[in-house]
Nucleic acid binder design. Sequence first.
DNA 1: CCAAAAGTACACAGATCTGTATACTAATAA
DNA 2: TTATTAGTATACAGATCTGTGTACTTTTGG
Lengths: 190, 190
Amino acid sequence: MDKREQLVSVAQQLFYKQGITATGIDKILAQSGVSKRTLYNHFKSKDELIVAALQRRDKEFMTMLKTAVPRLLKQKYDGATHAGLWAYFDAIDEWINSDKFCGCMFINASAEFPRKSDPIHAICASHKMLVIQFIEQLLVPFQLADSHKVAVQMAILTDGAIVNAHTANQMDAAKLAKMSAQQLLHIYQQ
Amino acid sequence: MDKREQLVSVAQQLFYKQGITATGIDKILAQSGVSKRTLYNHFKSKDELIVAALQRRDKEFMTMLKTAVPRLLKQKYDGATHAGLWAYFDAIDEWINSDKFCGCMFINASAEFPRKSDPIHAICASHKMLVIQFIEQLLVPFQLADSHKVAVQMAILTDGAIVNAHTANQMDAAKLAKMSAQQLLHIYQQ
DNA sequence: CCAAAAGTACACAGATCTGTATACTAATAA
DNA sequence: TTATTAGTATACAGATCTGTGTACTTTTGG
């Protein structure tokens, strides 16, 4: 019933699966069953729709993390305090090996909109910052001297795993990234 | 004078800087000073030109690695046998912080052409395999039990650094990735 | 019930994109 | 020299894309 939500939801799916530039407005209208006039009443351009789709994906992804990590922490590690980070990599692994996986929407979007000044690119950057903050929380039990730096290192492992799975079909990339993380934190813990 | 080479060279630059779908044939023709008919005598479609541009970039990037790594190995590590991998991460760092950097062309291309069956996507995958092989050579001095697995872990760190630099403006990503690599190989060396 | 808000259908402007057709010109090689 | 090859200029077909204009219909709140 909420036409705006329908539009953004369908746009998000199509942009993610087929690329943003490659997805025309008409495809989104056809699949959502909304008229073109309604779209341009809610958004003044395609760019605004792209922004809304990315913001929706941002919320969706963070929600996924915030539910999957506690679930896996309980399932696989009996809720052990330090194991949040392992559960995080397990969650990434689950996602990468699910059929909905098509790379990271924000990495993909910044590939299509490479100019740093582009608002679309800026949204991608701030999403990545949010993920780094999320990781930093999981690092608290390790009592690290510079937990932000380590969080960025974990983010690098994450993005590397995502890209290797998507581009090079390395579907075990998240498992390898998790191993790397465990070995790295073994050092930091000393 | 070699019109084909001019076309592929300009196409590579524009595809890399602006994205592939966003770059029209006409822009490539204008910048290379070649007529449209000549383009379609050499390539039967834009897709073929894309393939040629990616293959050219593949050669260029591998050549860059094969010259930068020995140079940095000598400059910074006095040619120490085991330091090839550190020189490799230094080379990635140099590239990331150069003004020509605009992410990894193959990561970007697979974002725009996500279907695994697409020949363009396949070229991206095989480029990543070449890089992994290159890394594996640098791991020889470490005499690892499973050097391929570690090479993939290094590739994950590399791609993560590239993506974090490009998408999240983390320009020190390669330095952090190098640190991770050094800590990881310290373990593997024991 | 009725007025305002929201949505639909559809035509179309104007730009852009890939690819082709045609007729002419420059270079090259036997 | 002359035939062939390679390239140019340019118009254009046909598709597609974003965005607007207009007239009609549905929904909804007071």
